[in-house]
Structures are given as structure tokens and as C-alpha cells.
Computed example of a mutant assay.
Amino acid sequence: MRFMVIVKANKDTEAGVMPSMELLTAMGNFNEEMVKAGVMQAGEGVHPTSKGTRIRYGDGAPAVTHGPFPLSSDLLAGFWLIETETRDEAIAWMKRAPFESGAEIEIRQIFAPEDFGDAFTPELREQEELMRAQLEK
């Protein structure tokens, strides 16, 4: 099972405050453990919303809004893509993440082709496989 782990933003990440050397070291060690265990597929921090843009789609032309955006629970500061056998295993790994007090993450399972049932036709499946092969190059 694949999961996206969303690291929620807070006032410090939105202000562009960089993590301490100690936290960066601890996070690097944690990431290294996940890589060696074959769990981590990707993981990055993202810049604050002051450097971001949102695009909202409606009936007319898409509306573009440049950040910063108000601090809310939907803002993110980073992410991981991980693969584990179960949701409980994903939770166990993330409980070990070296976050400071008050940090919050969200773990969301990523759709797999079989989740779409008959709507995911053989043609769509082939298209997906070709795209993934291109991405791996």
C-alpha cells in the first residue's frame, strides 16, 4: 500500500523559519532508515505559501491567486511518499518521525489501479503503465 504523508504547516513554516541543525540531522537519519527499509519513495519540504500560487477552476477561466494564504489546517509544509504492507505499518513509521511538539501530519492512502474497478479499462491501464515507465527513465 502506498501512502502520502502530509506534513501540516504552522506559523513557523509559513514564516519561512528553517529547522534547527538538530532537527535536520534527526530527520535525515529517519529518512535514511526508511530508505534502507524500502519504505520511503520520496519526501520533500515545500516553501511557505508566500511563494505559492493557487488556481481555482470554475465555469470561466481558471482564477489564479498568489500567496501568502491565511494559516489554516489545509496548508502543508512537506510530504513523504511511502510504501508499507498496511496502514498500521505506515502509522508505526510515522510515529517515529522526529517532529517537535505541536507538529501534525496526515496519512492518506494513494489510489491503486484496482481501486477504480471496471472504470479503469485495459486501455487506461496500458496508458498508466506507459506513463509510469516513462517516469522511471
Rank of each mutant, 00 (worst) to 15 (best):
Phe3Asp: 00
Asp12Thr: 00
Leu75Lys: 07
Phe116Ala: 13
Leu71Gly: 09
Arg108Gln: 03
Pro70Met: 02
Trp93Ser: 05
Glu22Leu: 12
Glu100Tyr: 09
Phe120Gln: 08
Val39Leu: 00
Tyr57Glu: 00
Met40Asp: 00
Gly102Glu: 04
Gly52Phe: 07
Gln127Phe: 09
Gly52Lys: 11
Leu130Pro: 02
Ser73Lys: 14
Glu33Pro: 05
Lys51Tyr: 07
Arg87Ser: 08
Ser73Leu: 11
Met18Cys: 02
Gly43Tyr: 08
Asp74His: 14
Pro19Leu: 10
Met4Phe: 13
Thr86Met: 10
Lys137Gly: 15
Lys36Gly: 07
Ala63Phe: 02
Asp74Thr: 14
Ala9Cys: 03
Gly16Met: 01
Lys95Met: 14
Leu24Pro: 04
Glu129Met: 13
Leu75Phe: 07
Gly102Cys: 05
Leu23Thr: 10
Ser101Asn: 11
Glu100Trp: 04
Met1Ser: 14
Thr65Asn: 03
Asn31Ala: 09
Thr25His: 12
Phe69Thr: 02
Lys11Glu: 15
Ser20Trp: 00
Ala119Lys: 08
Pro68Leu: 07
Glu106Ser: 05
Gln127Thr: 11
Glu33Tyr: 01
Leu81Thr: 08
Leu124Cys: 00
Phe79Ile: 08
Glu44Ser: 10
Gly16Phe: 03
Ser72Met: 04
Ala37Gly: 06
Glu14Arg: 03
Pro113Val: 08
Met131Tyr: 10
Leu24Phe: 06
Lys36Gln: 13
Lys36Cys: 06
Pro48Tyr: 09
Met21Glu: 14
